[in-house]
């Protein structure tokens, strides 16, 4: 692994997105706009807005980075650039870490905007500080990125990659506890929710925006999120083949 190649890869991925100003505008504006929409949807129930909107600030980057990464990586696979990189003196880790750097930076930018709007303008509360929400947002974005990298190996076209969003992300969102507490679900679903990484991402955020003492549960959530990220990256690395049929 080489720092030079990793950094160059991160800059290259950011460069690709920089040439697409509309994507950047959408990345930064859409989460803030959706949050604003929620604020006025729950105009009469501010406590519902708090319980859904506050964790969402840290979950948006997960969803968006999943989508962007899976498409960027799919393009890398279909355009032949991945094959070229694999014939060059570059380790797989350079590529994965480069992606991580680039999307980490993007996620940070996105988290800053959505947190500024949510906690600054729309009156969301963060009893343990906005910084904690921001840090969790970046961790979640990296998890989304790692899952996107992995799943891109199973898509042949961009249409398929986009369908992974409703197929893999929506069920996790529904089961994570954001819309209804998990112990009210059918026992089978509750058990399934414990196996999904998104559940831990949400749980950490829920703790971070709720009053009360922070305890080891938050640490466990964070460790699970980081572990799932590492596992997806490792599996993703296996799908990057130097030799193909």
């Amino acid at each position: 692994m080489s720092a030079r190649i990793t950094l160059a890869t991160g800059r290259r991925v950011l460069g690709q997105i920089r040439h697409d100003p509309r994507t950047i505008a959408l990345l930064l504006a859409v989460p803030a706009l959706l949050l604003t929409l929620l604020r006025y949807m729950f105009d009469g129930q501010p406590q519902v807005f708090q319980s859904i909107g506050a964790p969402l600030c840290g979950l948006f980057p997960f969803i968006v980075m999943f989508l962007i990464t899976s498409i960027t990586m799919l393009r890398e696979r279909t355009s032949g650039t991945l094959e070229r990189l694999m014939t060059l003196p570059m380790s797989k880790l350079d590529l994965l870490m480069g992606y991580g750097l680039a999307f980490g930076v993007l996620a940070a930018a996105q988290a800053i905007v959505v947190c500024a709007v949510g906690f600054g303008l729309l009156g969301l509360e963060s009893p343990h500080g906005v910084l904690l929400v921001g840090a969790l947002a970046i961790l979640n974005a990296l998890l989304g990125m790692a899952l996107g990298l992995l799943l891109s190996a199973f898509a042949r076209t961009e249409f398929q990659a986009v369908q992974f969003m409703p197929a893999f992300i929506f069920p996790q969102m529904l089961l994570c506890g954001l819309f209804i507490t998990r112990d009210e679900m059918a026992p089978v679903l509750e058990a399934v929710s414990w196996l999904l990484p998104f559940t831990y991402a949400y749980d950490a955020l829920d703790l971070a925006v709720s009053p009360g003492q922070l305890d080891a549960t938050l640490m466990i959530d964070v460790v699970v999120v980081i572990g799932a990220t590492m596992a997806s990256l490792a599996l993703g690395a296996v799908t990057l083949k130097r030799r193909t049929p």
């Binding site: 190649i5 160059a8 890869t9 460069g15 355009s79 032949g80 070229r84 014939t87 003196p89």
Partner: peptide, 29 residues
């Protein structure tokens, strides 16, 4: 890997980058 140069039939470069950015990236790699 640093001694064999391979150019595929379909151009394998990044379409959304400039010529300079493409070459600069591969030069660093």
């Amino acid at each position: 890997r640093s001694r064999v140069g391979y150019v595929t039939q379909a151009p394998s470069v990044y379409g959304d980058l400039t010529v300079a950015e493409n070459l600069s990236y591969f030069a660093k790699v």
